[in-house]
Design a protein around this nucleic acid. Structure first.
Length: 276
DNA sequence: ACCCGTGTTCGCTG
DNA sequence: TCAGCGAACACGGG
């Protein structure tokens, strides 16, 4: 379920899992060409084998892995897409079902890049020049790392008549905010997701910024348990206030039913009574 | 069978 | 010129 919180958890896990580690070998799924493009699965594996992990950064939903091999810097840009996840397994554990890349580390652990739908990306960069990658250069300041510039948010909202839900999902504005966090943030801000950007008052813009941070931070706190395993909880309860809760009673007013509308081909959930 | 999907990119359009 | 839109990418699950 990768939006900013899940990618942040992945970054924290990967830092612990890779600290001081060297990649002894890499196995890749030859069918997963899409994940490794414009390279190939085999070329990716060859490029990474023997490299030592260094710093790991996250900007929005992008993970920036720095490595070094033969004293030369090397980068991997990793994106989880819709269904990607990083898992740590023992050497003797069975392969995960949708494992697309396996990094065998010198401590004996295996990091799996597991991705059912193949919208995830693993791209090798010659050197670690992340700033030169268009997808990274296009991102706004990370909300978690840099906070949210309310004046900049207000200006961006004022500039176009796009519904506020779509505007706050713009990765050039608030990188990391995805479909779930956008619904959740607007519920907290008590702002109707269909409102046009310019119609928001300064107070509402501030509430949206606060709503994004509160929702993201709560999700991180929820997912970062004492023992970080990053396993998918089967049949887990929906932890969200409105997302995926069409028809249920609003958790705030306890009167209206949560509504679902479609915006830009994506589901949006909100309380028609609380959000104006 | 058919529809749905937590993300990004690309081509077309007004 | 460019923001905005819809389709495409790929594939399992309900």
């Amino acid at each position: 379920m990768p939006e900013l919180p899940e990618v942040e958890i992945a970054a924290r896990n990967l830092r612990r899992w890779t600290r001081g580690q060297t990649v002894e070998r890499v196995e890749t799924d030859p069918k997963a060409r899409y994940v490794f493009r414009p390279s190939s699965p085999a070329a990716f594996a060859k490029a990474i084998a023997g490299a030592r992990f260094g710093e790991i950064r996250r900007i929005g939903k992008q993970l920036l892995l720095s490595l070094e091999r033969d004293d030369a810097p090397l980068g991997v840009l990793a994106h989880l897409g819709m269904t990607g996840k990083w898992l740590r397994r023992a050497e003797e554990d069975p392969e995960t079902r949708f494992s697309r890349a396996r990094f065998h580390l010198d401590d004996g652990a295996v990091l799996h890049f597991d991705d059912l739908r193949l919208f995830g990306r693993l791209r090798v960069l010659p050197g670690a020049r992340f700033d030169e990658v268009p997808e990274v250069a296009a991102l706004g300041p990370d909300p978690l790392e840099r906070g949210i510039d309310v004046a900049a948010l207000a200006a961006a909202l004022a500039r176009s008549r796009l519904p506020v839900k779509l505007r706050i999902m713009d990765q050039a504005l608030l990188p990391g905010v995805g479909n779930i966090q956008a619904s959740e943030a607007l519920f907290r801000a008590r702002v109707d997701p269909r409102r046009k950007g310019p119609s928001l008052s300064p107070r509402e813009v501030k509430a949206v910024a606060d709503g994004v941070l509160a929702s993201v931070n709560e999700a991180i706190a929820r997912e970062e348990g004492p023992e970080i395993t990053y396993v998918e909880e089967p049949g887990a309860e929906n932890p969200f206030r409105v997302y995926g809760r069409e028809g249920e009673k609003c958790p705030r007013c306890r009167k209206a039913a949560i509504r679902r509308v479609v915006q830009a081909q994506r589901s949006t959930f909100f309380c028609p009574r609380c959000q104006r």
